[in-house]
Amino acid sequence: MAAIDLDTMLAKIKSSQWALADIDWDAPGAEEIHPDQWVKLKAFMSDLMWIEHVGARGFAAMAKKAPDDTLKEIYTYFHAEEQRHANAEMALMKRWGMLEGDELPEPNINLRLTIEWLDRYSDDMPLEVLGSVIPMLEIALDGALLKFLLDEVSDPVCHQVFEKINADEARHLGVDFHVMEMLGQGRFHQLAVKTIGTVANPKLILGVLAYAPLLNRMRDNIVAMGLKEERLYEAMNKYKRIGGRTAEGRRNPWFQIISRHGEYVVDRSHFYHKPVDALVKLSNFIPARLLGPVPTWVKELTWKPTA
């Protein structure tokens, strides 16, 4: 894949917008969700929609760091598009009777910790870090979760929605990997190497402490639903393959760190999981009220097509 032209990409993004109102949420097909599927699907959709939302906040932070106006605007759109995905997934949940009134799905404690971290520190993270982590999440989402969902669920409205989401994600991945390569070049490469020196940055450590257990918990949830672990391996390999397709991409030290980390995550026998699974257990003991109210950006989520 050759490097993409960001201006063309931005124009493409602007001309590919869609809205929840484009979809007939009352169309037939909701009954195709089997009752035995329902509980697990509810948990899956809830995780999914929260990852989209967390990803949205990540793009908001990247927009602040973007080195030029075009990329900044692209990230501003991606921020909104991930929110749109979360909104649309909530609308599906609503359609399937998984939401009570105006309530948001309950985020698990690891999500809450991640949200908290994003709220406080993500704007301080350098572009190299976010720009290398986000593609990993996106590829896992795109390559593993969404495909799995479409295999499991036959509701046509669900397929219609994810067709739109997937089209957006294809553009996200295009930009993600473009930026990863950019981060391996000249000025950015030097910066990336420099920030490696700040691995001991307490904000970053806190981030890892929030993010690592989140991934483990999600992996467990998903596997419990019947997702084959190979799907996750495939996603990790895809990250390594595309991220490392050029010398610049491979030169980005954050790419190296994250692809290594990805390998640990999918390899259940790796020592990595001992402390992280312990963290998952530990986090179960954190009372949610300790975290206080959710940040107001979370409250902007909605399943209602019109406001």
């Binding site: 809205a19 929840l20 759109y77 909104a80 019109t306």
Partner: peptide, 21 residues
């Protein structure tokens, strides 16, 4: 602060997928 996508007969559609009427 969501980017505006378009104006519809009833309001403004922004990129987070919502039509504000």
């Amino acid at each position: 602060t969501w980017p505006i996508d378009c104006i519809s007969p009833e309001g403004i559609r922004t990129a987070e997928g919502i039509e504000h009427q």
